[in-house]
Computed example of a mutant assay.
Amino acid sequence: MTGAAVAAAAQTLVGARFRLHGRDPRFGLDCVGVAACALRGAGHAGAVPEGYALRGGNADGWAARLDAAGLVRADEDAPGDVMLLATGPGQFHLAVLTARGFVHADAGLRRVVEVPGRPGWPVIGVWRVED
Score class of each variant (00 low, 15 high):
G3R: 02
A5N: 06
A5F: 07
A8H: 08
A8T: 12
T12D: 07
L13M: 01
V14S: 01
R17N: 13
F18I: 09
F18S: 12
F18E: 09
R19F: 13
R19W: 12
L20T: 15
H21V: 15
G22N: 00
P25L: 08
R26M: 11
F27K: 14
F27R: 15
G28D: 10
G28P: 08
G28V: 04
L29H: 05
D30E: 10
C31M: 00
V32Q: 00
V32F: 02
V32W: 03
V32R: 00
G33N: 05
V34E: 00
V34R: 01
V34L: 02
C37Q: 01
C37M: 01
A38I: 06
L39Y: 11
L39G: 04
R40M: 06
A42N: 06
G43Y: 01
A45W: 00
G46S: 05
A47M: 07
P49V: 14
P49M: 10
P49R: 11
E50I: 07
E50L: 12
G51T: 04
Y52K: 04
A53S: 14
A53M: 11
A53V: 01
A53N: 11
A53P: 06
L54I: 10
R55V: 15
R55E: 14
N58Q: 03
D60F: 10
G61C: 02
G61Q: 06
G61Y: 09
W62F: 13
A63N: 13
R65K: 11
D67Q: 13
A69P: 08
A69T: 15
L71Q: 11
R73S: 07
R73W: 04
A74E: 01
D75Q: 10
D77P: 13
A78P: 00
A78K: 02
P79E: 05
M83D: 05
L84S: 12
L85F: 01
A86V: 15
T87R: 04
P89H: 06
P89D: 03
P89C: 06
P89E: 08
G90A: 11
G90Q: 09
Q91D: 14
Q91A: 15
F92I: 00
V96R: 03
L97M: 09
T98L: 05
A99M: 00
A99K: 02
R100Y: 14
R100N: 13
R100D: 12
G101M: 04
F102D: 15
F102E: 15
V103I: 05
D106K: 03
D106S: 12
A107D: 11
A107Y: 13
A107M: 11
A107R: 13
G108K: 12
G108A: 15
L109Q: 15
R110E: 03
R111E: 11
V112G: 08
V115R: 09
V115T: 15
P116I: 09
G117L: 02
R118I: 14
R118C: 13
R118A: 15
P119A: 09
W121E: 07
W121R: 07
V123P: 08
I124E: 13
I124G: 07
G125A: 14
W127K: 00
W127N: 05
D131Q: 15
D131G: 15
D131W: 13
